[in-house]
């Protein structure tokens, strides 16, 4: 008997999200849907460190009462936690022309998908008190927003994302180099792009970021048609980034094409693994939870490594 789908969970489905016009609402629903879902959220008690006790006053949540101290002292004390406010996250969103592609079968364009992911992650990060910045780019950074943890900052971020893709080509290397210069160390950089650039150049840019101790999550966005080349019959492919035209019978090249794409993804994945960079390929027909999970897993790992450094260091 099929299990009933929770109401909020459906908002992780891009086909549902695509029907929601507002980016803010879309991101919020996605995050809430993610939280209420069957996944164990690392948000509960892991991301917050103990700071001090204070006396219980009426109205405090009894869940935060320290029962062990009550046993020893016979008095009610409330545990106080220290919020993590020093996590800085920069969302690097590709706004090149290639991101505007949407195949007939896809629920939304790659840019819309990237914007949804970025907005969701920003919402989630701000909810946790993290500072979130944003860089929009094509061949260079076209728009940069410094990280901030102010709750109202989210509207600024979503406002920038709503601009849509531009006509420029994708140039990841220069953007990452530029970003590395602009940011301080130990920032979580989340790159959301189709990465339609020379992979060697992209890797060099990543190395630059990693050299400065930044954590990086590479979200590689694909339209499902770009993964499978589902066309038949003579087709004139018109390049979106001024890459000319090509008249082929796609069915004759489908296997070779998919091998090329797989090889590209595998190459990037391999290089990223070597640099301890999370590489998350997904297509626009997949749920946003993949991106959110990747973000939270990286965040948790970072906090764990910080804790171990604190403990190890006394």
């Amino acid at each position: 008997m099929p299990q009933p789908v929770p109401t909020h969970h459906k908002f992780l489905d891009p086909r549902v999200l695509a029907k929601i016009s507002g980016l803010e609402l879309r991101a919020r629903l996605a995050v809430e849907g993610f939280r209420v879902g069957g996944h164990a959220s690392p948000y509960q008690g892991v991301s917050v460190e103990f700071a001090d006790h204070r006396s219980y006053v009426q109205g405090d949540d009894i869940r935060h009462v320290d029962w062990k101290l009550y046993a020893r002292t016979d008095k009610y004390y409330i545990k106080q936690y220290e919020e993590e406010t020093n996590l800085s996250c920069v969302l690097v969103v590709d706004c090149s022309a290639s991101m505007g592609y949407q195949s007939p079968a896809a629920p939304m364009s790659k840019h819309d998908f990237a914007a949804s992911v970025a907005a969701s992650l920003a919402y989630l990060a701000l909810q946790q008190g993290d500072a979130v910045g944003m860089a929009l780019f094509d061949q260079a950074i076209t728009h940069f927003i410094k990280p901030s943890s102010h709750p109202g900052h989210w509207k600024t971020l979503t406002g920038a994302l709503a601009r849509g893709p531009g006509p420029g080509k994708t140039g990841v290397r220069a953007v990452l180099d530029d970003l590395a210069e602009r940011m301080g160390r130990r920032t979580l950089v989340i790159v959301i792009s189709d990465l339609f650039d020379d992979p060697d150049e992209t890797i060099l840019g990543l190395k630059h970021l990693r050299y400065l101790k930044n954590d990086v999550i590479m979200c590689n966005v694909w339209d499902p048609a770009e993964l499978t080349l589902p066309f038949d019959g003579p087709t004139l492919f018109d390049g979106l980034e001024g890459s000319g035209r090509l008249m082929v019978e796609p069915q004759a090249f489908r296997q070779r094409y998919t091998r090329e794409v797989e090889s590209f993804i595998a190459s990037l994945r391999g290089q990223c693994r070597k640099m301890h960079v999370d590489f998350v390929p997904f297509d626009t027909s997949h749920g946003l939870d993949v991106a959110i999970s990747a973000y939270l897993a990286t965040r948790a790992a970072r906090i764990r490594s910080r804790s171990s450094r604190v403990l190890g260091g006394g």
Partner: peptide, 30 residues
């Protein structure tokens, strides 16, 4: 059929070009 082609905007041209360049001779023979 060659005259009745359809036109598709396309982002991943680099993979398509690479695939068609490498397989063109084989495809022509086939």
């Amino acid at each position: 059929n060659l005259r009745r082609y359809k036109r598709v905007p396309w982002a991943a041209m680099r993979f398509l070009r690479s695939a068609s360049r490498r397989g063109a001779r084989r495809v022509r023979i086939e």
